[in-house]
């Protein structure tokens, strides 16, 4: 059986908000290491990889591996009933038909109990090779969100160019063109507000802004975001949170 108690409902609520528009149904794979999810969007352009490590829960118990097939829209509806500060407990039997969710208020004067039907999802897992990326860019998550939103007003796609001079986000469309260049900064007082660029070679890749804007729905989960790129491979966008991560992979566009 699974029993996982999470001190802050907000973590799960924000995580769902960050993935439910990209993925409709997904298996939450539970093991003694924690709860993970890997799913592609319908058009097979983007992939979401979530890990909530066992040590992020207190307590966490999972006797045998379980795949909980969940409609993310349904889970999101149930989680709307949880307050951000509530303590959430997830429970499932072995070979379960339902997932049980309990929301307790901080001072335990209100306990809400929900049961959600599970579904059978035959989901293939993709092998994601360990990659030493040529460019690793860490920046404030809010900055990345703003850049993607601003450039999506100009064009459907953005070219990200990482070089020793900085990282340049550039878009060109019918109304004109625009770009934002970030230089490396160091803010010892507020490391989350710094931009760092680690580069072994220059990288230039073009991506759909629709997907990037979608990824930035994870902004409330983390102060910083890391973009990892190599030429001709998918972009990795990572939001690290306490007790896990939310990663998005996005296939690049290629020139005709």
């Amino acid at each position: 059986m699974l029993e996982a108690r999470l001190a802050q409902a907000a973590v799960l609520k924000k995580t769902l908000d960050a993935i439910k528009e990209l993925v409709t149904d997904a298996n939450f794979d539970c093991s003694d290491g924690g709860i993970s999810l890997q799913a592609m969007d319908n058009s097979h352009v983007a992939l979401v990889s979530l890990l909530l490590r066992a040590d992020g829960f207190e307590p966490y118990r999972c006797d045998r591996n379980l795949a909980l097939g969940i409609n993310l829209n349904s889970l999101s509806k149930v989680l709307r009933s949880a307050q951000n500060e509530d303590i959430i407990t997830l429970k499932a039997a072995d070979d379960p038909d339902n997932l049980s969710l309990t929301f307790e208020s901080q001072n335990q004067d209100r306990i809400s109990e929900y049961e959600m039907k599970l579904m059978d999802i035959d989901q293939e897992h993709l092998g994601i090779p360990e990659t030493a990326y040529a460019a690793v860019i860490t920046m404030p998550a809010a900055e990345f969100q703003r850049i993607c939103r601003d450039l999506s007003g100009i064009s459907e796609s953005v070219t990200i160019d990482a070089s020793k001079d900085g990282v340049k986000f550039a878009s060109a469309g019918d109304i004109g063109n625009g770009s934002v260049t970030l230089k490396q900064t160091h803010n010892p007082e507020e490391p989350a507000l710094s931009t760092s660029i680690e580069l072994s070679e220059s990288v230039t890749l073009t991506f759909s802004l629709k997907y990037l804007v979608n990824f930035t729905k994870a902004t409330p989960l983390a102060g910083a975001v890391t973009l990892q790129m190599s030429n001709d491979v998918p972009l990795l966008v990572e939001y690290k949170m306490e007790g896990g991560y939310l990663r998005y992979y996005l296939a690049p566009k290629i020139q005709d």
Binding site: S43, H44, L126, G127, P234, A251, Q255
Partner: peptide
């Protein structure tokens, strides 16, 4: 112009 590639091109099923 540019064409969107699918992820399956890069990542293979396990």
């Amino acid at each position: 112009g540019s064409q969107q590639r699918a992820l399956d091109f890069f990542f293979k099923p396990k």
